[in-house]
Design a protein around this nucleic acid. Sequence first.
DNA 1: TTGAAAGCGTTACCAA
DNA 2: TTGGTAACGCTTTCAA
Lengths: 343, 343
Amino acid sequence: MAAFTSKDVARIAGVSQSTVSYVMTGKRPISERTRKRVLDAMEQLTYEPHSGARALAGRRTQVVGLVVPFGADGQIFGLLPFIETIASSARAHDHEVLLVTADEGSAGLRRLAGRALCDAIIMMDIEEHDDRVPVAAALPVPVVLIGVPADPAGLHCVDLDFETAARMAVDELADTAHDEIVVLGYPASAMERGLNFVGRVLRSARQRARARGVPLTVIEPVEHGQEATAEAVDQLLARRGGGRLGVVLPHNDSIGPILRALRTRDVLPGRDISVIGISPDPQAEESDPAYTNVSEEPRDVSRRAMETLFWLLDPAPGVERPGVDLVAPRLIRRSTVMPIPSN
Amino acid sequence: MAAFTSKDVARIAGVSQSTVSYVMTGKRPISERTRKRVLDAMEQLTYEPHSGARALAGRRTQVVGLVVPFGADGQIFGLLPFIETIASSARAHDHEVLLVTADEGSAGLRRLAGRALCDAIIMMDIEEHDDRVPVAAALPVPVVLIGVPADPAGLHCVDLDFETAARMAVDELADTAHDEIVVLGYPASAMERGLNFVGRVLRSARQRARARGVPLTVIEPVEHGQEATAEAVDQLLARRGGGRLGVVLPHNDSIGPILRALRTRDVLPGRDISVIGISPDPQAEESDPAYTNVSEEPRDVSRRAMETLFWLLDPAPGVERPGVDLVAPRLIRRSTVMPIPSN
DNA sequence: TTGAAAGCGTTACCAA
DNA sequence: TTGGTAACGCTTTCAA
């Protein structure tokens, strides 16, 4: 296990070291005969190329930097499918994934690029006005954002289409003959952080409700914690005037507490009130009750982000990628929307 | 931003390249005067050393490989605190974190070592008989396991002390005058995978209950899914003979469904029955009802694992680390254990 | 306390 | 279709 080099492979295969290199990179035509001898030698020595040497000589690290929103608070629930999909896509392209936490801020980005730790960067959890975005844009490596900032500064972004998500929720409630829609908004902290989707969701919901002729109210902010949630829910229930009331819950973290508050008040979603969340599927599925949700499609979003990233690393001729790539959400019906009355 | 090298720094500082290197590594005494000039030059150029070149010449990557249990099913709920703590500890030692998913199996390990991608490896979610452990033990880089396999093969392991965890749960119920204890066990799949703690928990609980003179029954397997859970819960409730019944739930994934089943049956934990989970804190805290739990201490476990890892990379003279390092759990009382009757 | 120079293991150019 | 060889940017020995 004393770590063989391409020189060893060359010796065993009876070829030059450069030939070994060309067999690996495929950047030069190699006769079938030599190729086989080289591959055999590699096999025999269980040879693996030294990544540092390769990075130094070839100026390619075969590493993707991934900036994840740890350290930052927030919707950590749905994080894993993103990371998982990114890791698997990287692997499929023979790339490694280097983890950087968001609490490092721009310094993390500069380190990734400055030390030549990676060939490209994926950055998650982008805020509307995000300090890191201008820094990222100036980096000598391509950066793909998951999330859409106010000014993408020329960077490629991928995200859920939150406008459509809000519209789908409103449509579902309008289609099922609801008389009124209430959106329970975000906590003040989220609004201050200017997460890119907060505004998009509320605006789109309002607009669609108007178009569908259903009155829509937004209650916000909805803070975390027992009492704050209780208060918001009471405010919500006060609006129930015998009509069919539908609630849209666009903020992951508050959905659980809100459902609990409803239960405490003996208000049963799907019977007394309708509830639609914008949230990761597993959360909706495992919640009690399992609620109808508009999915955040972490796998689609991540996959598209990685497609863009590898395209930037190796632009296919004639193919283009959109600057802002919005992924269509999917509405999954569970039991929390009251069916249309049969009369 | 054209990436400066240590040669540039040397030129600006008016010293040799080797001096720049020695300033960075501190492996040679440098006069205060030269040191300052070098540091100034670095600052001025915003110099960052090329990690590939450094790895090649110095045979140190300053990278920690992290094998996470994605792709594998399972208790993904509590995963993030582990990753977060590991990332932060790595950063504190000026190391990067390279992510490898468990579904790559031993191939991932061999790649990490063979390509010189990292200096050391942390591997999570170790099964009792884990194919990767012998491979890891033969690697030319140190490996620290989070989890304890049947045969650690000389590797260092860190994990929660599940024996003590089980004992604490039993003690808490015995101390609060319970007449009977039931442990709702693991699904068959977990038992087959031979997760290292399954056996440890049940054995220790049985033993402690005997010592405390409280009858203890284990119901297992408890499969996932609505009906399976319901069945287990009915089986559980059938044991209630007017006495004080305490339940221990050692398996994360089943705790939510079980609590739900209890609620459906109008059995209120903390009033009609007692419940203690062995689970991550946030899960216990955010559950409804928030239940008394024995914490898995992901932060402590990860921190100790990283301490061991950096000790292996740079053994301090005179200091030793235990081969198997078990972290003490902590019991957090919430509302699901019935208080001692006051009479 | 410092400098010069020989590697480290690849890639890629220049020849053949 | 192949081989020789000069980088790549750092660390570290050997000299001074």
